[in-house]
């Protein structure tokens, strides 16, 4: 049984937003800019960008954030309905049948990777589990126009896979926030992100990450 992982090369990312749009189309996620009628936003993949430095020595970091497929997901620990589970291939999935839409998971996820759909259910990136089961790649990986190696997807248990080689060489790194011991999403950082090892504590980055949670509805129901 494969154990899947995703690598995003931030040196090659054009910031075209194609992955964002392709994901939304693939999963029929409601598209609408926030207004009075639509106060929330809905996305599995989201750009966290932040500026640092002083003019003229300025950089703009960029991390497309999805569900990191944590080894020991905090969201699953807090879900009152046991709706979040890991498959045997390591992919974390949310059961729409079990989910009661309380939103606790959206707040405890350190990455802000979970959102509540317009139908009131929790949702997050699951590496396009249905596509994987059909032998396809995740839609974002398939759609990225930069080049074939900007987004890579493969079996972490296959030492010959491109993803395994990049991780074992140290080029691809996880983004481990507080409380997270391991993830399946990795990045090849660029100079725009500064010191990657310190990113988890970088205020500008964390502020960008936290913006996500303002787009979400408040928690409701039983905690």
């Amino acid at each position: 049984m494969a154990r899947y992982g995703l690598i995003i090369d931030l040196n090659k990312c054009l910031r075209s937003r194609t992955c964002y749009v392709a994901c939304k189309r693939e999963h029929r996620i409601l598209a609408h800019p926030r207004d009075k009628e639509h106060p929330y936003e809905y996305y599995r993949l989201r750009y966290v960008e932040w500026e640092w430095g002083e003019y003229p020595m300025v950089k703009r970091g960029n991390v497309p954030v999805v569900c990191m497929q944590c080894d020991d997901p905090i969201c699953a620990q807090f879900c009152p309905e046991d709706a979040i589970r890991k498959r045997s291939d390591g992919i974390t999935v949310i059961s729409k049948e079990r989910c009661n839409g309380c939103g606790v998971c959206t707040q405890v996820c350190p990455y802000g990777a979970i959102y509540i759909t317009h139908e009131g259910k929790a949702d997050a990136c699951d590496f396009c589990a249905e596509r994987i089961d059909s032998g396809l790649q995740p839609k974002c990986v398939e759609s990225c126009p930069a080049d074939r190696s900007t987004m890579l997807f493969g079996d972490l248990d296959d030492p010959l896979s491109e993803v395994s080689k990049l991780i074992s060489s140290g080029k691809a790194k996880p983004l481990l926030l507080q409380g997270v011991t391991g993830t399946r999403v990795y990045y090849i950082p660029s100079s725009n992100e500064g010191d990657w090892e310190k990113l988890a504590f970088e205020e500008a980055f964390l502020t960008g990450l936290a913006k996500r949670k303002r787009d979400l509805p408040p928690i409701r129901g039983i905690i």
């Binding site: 937003r17 964002y20 749009v21 800019p33 926030r34 750009y47 960008e49 500026e51």
Partner: peptide, 13 residues
């Protein structure tokens, strides 16, 4: 275009 005008797509731009 509703997809392309979402705030979430903007990042820091």
């Amino acid at each position: 275009n509703r997809y392309l005008m979402e705030y979430a797509i903007e990042g820091d731009c």
